[in-house]
Design a protein around this nucleic acid. Structure first.
Lengths: 263, 263
DNA sequence: TCAATAGTGTCTCTTAGACAATATCGC
DNA sequence: GCGATATTGTCTAAGAGACACTATTGA
């Protein structure tokens, strides 16, 4: 039995001593690759539908650290930007009876743990939604005995989600959109060097609209957010785009000033 | 024994059957009067410090309806705009031992209820912060046997707050400020007819900065948010200001378009 | 040489932001 | 008349937004 299994067994047996009751955290982890915005999802053994990587909150930690801990476990990343965006509390949200009656109880059985109807894991939960931004290529999605599969899904073609996780994703996308109108974005999602068309494509995906490429470049350069390098990226049968970097000082400055970016 | 007391007794005895564990809601209720932004606070019998009107969440309701229910109880208002803005989960936030050891236990004693150390009310709570906007003059602050005092306090001269409620208020003010940069505000806080200087003063208070009065008027009128009436408000030894109304259609339009308002 | 995508400049029009003199009102 | 507050217009500068042709690459 590995460390993770031991932890889960202890969670089931003693969890209510050190976890908050009725509170969970769900993370919408955004990555960007090949001009597609992606979300990291997992699927427990025996389930048809997919889940957001989420978990419970230790009594000795904050929601932020719970979210960070869970994200770190699934992505192996230490430095990741996390944003609390909404709580989900519709009483109907917990009514995925397949999960509670089948998946949970089978898992309990396989781990040789007894859970009855008053077990804390069967309470109704209110979930706090976080979205996270990370560079796709740094992540090694990590499944385990609970999460049979753990992989990236393109935002516009997600699999069937259980609970209200489709709602949570919808809200996360909306929050990300609003966020993008008020703060620069990209440093967390793109590699260190990137091309303007890649950056523009990211903005277009998030904001869900076309942006004029001349105006976009003009703006990004004129506010000093990005800086051209001398290198080019060779990517196939057409003119090679220049690589750009973010001006980190300016990036922070724009965030702290709360300058509004309109496209 | 009145209805409210019965309810509180039942909460203490049977509450864990119908309330979520470890989750509460706290409301920062904003009102505006005499050019001052105010917050509704209450003080339980025997406490030195003040509290935000908050409460627990029924398992059969959402956080939004819990917040609305609690606000309605304290203000007697049905229609009030509520915004979830942040969760507060620092484990230290529950360490106001005076409240748990003295106030709660005395209240229990006076109501003839026993509570021991494992009682659900003594759990650590994570609180969901809401801010509410309401027209000051419509509110009848309601105290009761629990909240000895219930009254408005000017935002810039608040009394000592218990728990982390001073933090919650600080965050609420910040959220209100951000909100004001992105959505029109005023309809919820001002009477139906108001003067431009009143409206401007509201904005200056929330945004915490001076605004040029010519530019302010010009902007508000040019975007169609406010409409001049023929009436004037007679208020003392100087020129009488005109009364204005909000254009409700335009107000909604601006909200749904998410138009950015910069001052 | 063709298909695909990148790179680049100009003009207009709106509006943010700076700025101060005059009008009313009550005493 | 005086103290207090409300009302009102113009100018400038910045930038949002519309718009299309040329350059480069690899097959």
């Amino acid at each position: 039995m590995n460390k993770r299994e031991k932890l889960v067994i202890d969670q089931m047996v003693n969890g209510e001593n050190y976890y908050y009751r009725s509170i969970s955290v769900d993370n919408v982890i955004f990555g960007y690759h090949n001009r597609e915005l992606k979300i990291l999802l997992l699927k427990p053994l025996g389930m048809q539908r997919w889940l957001l990587p989420g978990g419970y909150v230790l009594k000795k930690e904050t929601l932020d650290s719970a979210a960070k801990r869970i994200v770190r476990y699934r992505t192996m990343l230490k430095d990741i930007k996390l944003f609390q965006f909404k709580c989900f509390s519709d009483p109907q949200r917990n009514k995925d009876t397949y999960f509670t009656t089948s998946v949970l109880s089978e898992m309990a059985q396989s781990l040789n743990v007894k859970i009855d109807n008053t077990h804390w894991l069967l309470d109704d939960f209110i979930s706090v939604g976080y979205f996270a931004l990370t560079e796709f290529s740094l992540v090694k999605p990590r499944g385990d005995f609970y999460a049979e599969e753990c992989q990236w899904w393109e935002v516009n073609s997600l699999p069937e989600m259980s609970f209200d996780h489709a709602d949570i994703i919808r809200e996360a996308l909306l929050s990300l959109k609003m966020f993008t109108y008020h703060y620069p974005i990209g440093k967390e999602l793109l590699p260190e060097k990137f091309t303007i068309p890649e950056l523009q494509s990211l903005y277009e995906t998030i904001l869900n609209k076309k942006i004029d490429n001349r105006n976009f470049t003009k703006k990004m350069v004129s506010i000093g957010l990005v800086v051209k390098t001398n290198e080019k990226k060779k990517i196939g049968g057409h003119r090679s785009p220049f690589l750009y970097k973010f001006d980190n000082e300016r990036y922070k400055e724009i965030i702290s000033n709360g300058e509004v970016l309109i496209f």
